[in-house]
Amino acid sequence: MSANTLNLTLQIWRQEGPNAAGRFETHEARNIPDDASFLEMLDVVNEGLIQEGKVPIEFPHDCREGICGTCGVMINGRAHGQERGTATCQLHMRKFSDGDTIAIEPWRAAAFPVVKDLVVDRSPLDAVIEAGGFITAPTGTAADANETPIPKEAADSAMDAAACIGCGACVAACPNSAGQLFTSAKLWHLNSLPQGQPERFKRTEAMVETMEQFFGSCTNHGECSEACPKEISLDFIAYMNRDYIKSKRVNRKLAGQR
């Protein structure tokens, strides 16, 4: 532990609203304890702004323990900052040095319009889920949970994919603003489980095609996985590609040669 404090220069993106022109604003962050989290540093800056009578900076945050996926900004050109496998809220100031200049920008993608300052609208991620990211099992219809054994390895693999917190860092980090890592993780979570089989290909087709209405395409850079606070693997993208091509054939068969 240390009681060190930092003085930092922040270049923060300010934008009044979705249609307003944005700009970088320079703010000094003084005497920031290095035990503080990145978001607490912004809290301190905001307190200062309010004291000065200036409108505080809007930034996305909620649980501050790295699980809700609300937070996320570009910090010095990296989604969620330089710490691997760490969401913005879990990035701590001890990872910075006194005198650093930090550029802070919102996620950028055509599908993620800026709402205000550092806050963006990520509802396309919900649209992808809505298209088929569920298992149709109405309440009350379920059989005993142990009736369908699932090999431990399969359950673990599904869990690896399901760890996604939906923060959108994958889209933000992607040069093409592609939603592949998110969509493929959601798909593999459900497609790899026995419960997800009946709707597997219908789901795949619907979610991929909805994804493509919002996001770019994948060029296999791998930036998404690097930026992901849950370190979701690129493998899921390959699984999704495989299932999608298959879905075109399978769904045609299921529907009796449409």
Binding site: Q11, W13, F24, M74, N76, G77, R78, Q82, A103, E105, R108, A109, A110, A111, F112, A173, C174, P175, N176, S177, A178, F214, F215, G216, S217, T219, N220, H221, G222, E223, S225, E226, A227
Partner: peptide, 29 residues
């Protein structure tokens, strides 16, 4: 067509983006 699609999907960062996984080859395809 994919390049056109990607150009329509993205929005450029104003600060310098720091590439972690994308290499020279992938970025110059």
């Amino acid at each position: 067509t994919l390049t056109r699609m990607n150009q329509a999907s993205g929005s450029r960062y104003q600060s310098k983006q720091d590439w972690l996984a994308a290499n020279f080859a992938s970025r110059t395809m």
